[in-house]
Design a protein around this nucleic acid. Structure first.
Lengths: 210, 210
DNA sequence: TGGTAACTTGACTATAAGGTTAAAATATTT
DNA sequence: AAATATTTTAACCTTATAGTCAAGTTACCA
């Protein structure tokens, strides 16, 4: 239920302000961590006075929750559903492409998510225990089905999913390391394609699908 | 230059205290982030009074630097050198095994490192720009040599290194997610072996080495 | 054994940060 | 145009935390 206020000028101001605040907060939380990101620093980045921030979000934790919610939305949209009818090759291709796209287009969300998990998943335990676990179990069953059918090599489906997650997310979470090592300032258009092509190539071959 | 104080009782006390403090600090920095980890919380975890912590390390930032130094030490030891004479298959096998071992045995170091990079590598920029970049360039040249020799499939060596890093580190950094999704309390002895076997299998095949 | 250095610790201080309040400004509605 | 609701903002309050200090204790050494 996305509270859609009536389209008044004030409603627009609220929506704009909240969006500005959330974007600023996301960056601050990434760069400084939860405790290190101050309401003042978020305010400065958003270009608003501190008290204004606390008018829209009652307190700092609420801001963080809103950022996390946005993160899970992004995760959900970016996960890329696996269609069982297309067979393993197409399924894996689409899965990889979707996750790479998400890493390159929404790297901040990926970083927030990664930090949460590394720090003990304080706010995501429930998400992992329910939603995520079911998602992985379902997709793993699909892979297992293809393996039993001889359509792909016998590899542990769980570990295969982890492999695709980790390799794709790496380009978001470790963006700075990747760029530094390659002596580049930022990702270019073609990087996303090249990464997709590389991962698809090596993983498909790894699964005996090439 | 590891200041080896003469083996007095006090020297021993210093060494023991510093070790206790660093271990406690590492955990706190992971769980709470730099700003969120308080000197008091580190003291509590180490079982020492706060003022004592600040006697051994002048201030909080020094504690963090010491933790990071230990992290880079661990990274350095765990990276696993690649021997060019053995050919790509053995090289990749050893590389993967070494990184998986590091992830399972020193997951805290991996987490500290990951958080640093995600947060902008404030303290590791220099390390990445010099040491890491050279390391990757050298290893990439080796892989390229094998590719040119037709000893393995033509894949981008840089991306191959990133792939091995990301898949292996995933089991340390995302430990909680992996365990939660698999509905397990903690890693067992055999997990490390199974992960090593899985990754070796799929990556070697992905490189046309199986 | 007396003096010095290393260590321990409770009490204290300064400051930064989250959050409140109340009053002013702006927008909306009737 | 008056009344009401929303938004903006400065000033203030409270608490938590990094770091200091000084007085004590323990170990070392001549």
């Amino acid at each position: 239920m996305n509270e859609v206020k009536k389209e008044s000028k004030q409603g627009k101001i609220r929506a704009q302000s909240e969006a500005k605040i959330l974007e600023a907060a996301q960056e601050e939380f990434i760069l400084q961590g939860y405790k290190g990101a101050t309401v003042q620093s978020i305010a400065d980045r958003a270009g608003l006075p501190k008290a204004n921030i606390l008018y829209y979000f009652k307190n700092k934790e609420n801001i963080y929750h809103a950022v996390l919610e946005h993160t899970l939305d992004t995760w959900d949209k970016g996960i890329g559903d696996i269609d069982p009818d297309q067979g393993p090759k197409i399924a894996i291709e689409k899965f990889i492409a979707s996750k790479v796209r998400m890493s390159f287009q929404h790297s901040s969300s990926s970083k927030i998510y990664a930090m949460e998990i590394i720090q003990g998943a304080q706010h995501l335990k429930e998400f992992a225990r329910t939603y995520l676990r079911r998602w992985v179990r379902e997709k793993a069953a699909l892979f297992q089905h293809w393996i039993d059918n001889g359509e792909m090599v016998d590899v542990d489906p769980y570990k295969l999913i982890f492999l695709i997650w980790s390799t794709t997310q790496h380009y978001a979470d470790f963006e700075i390391q990747v760029l530094t090592v390659m002596n580049r300032a930022e990702y270019e258009e073609e990087d996303q394609e090249q990464v997709t092509a590389f991962l698809t190539d090596i993983i498909l071959r790894g699964c005996g699908l090439k």
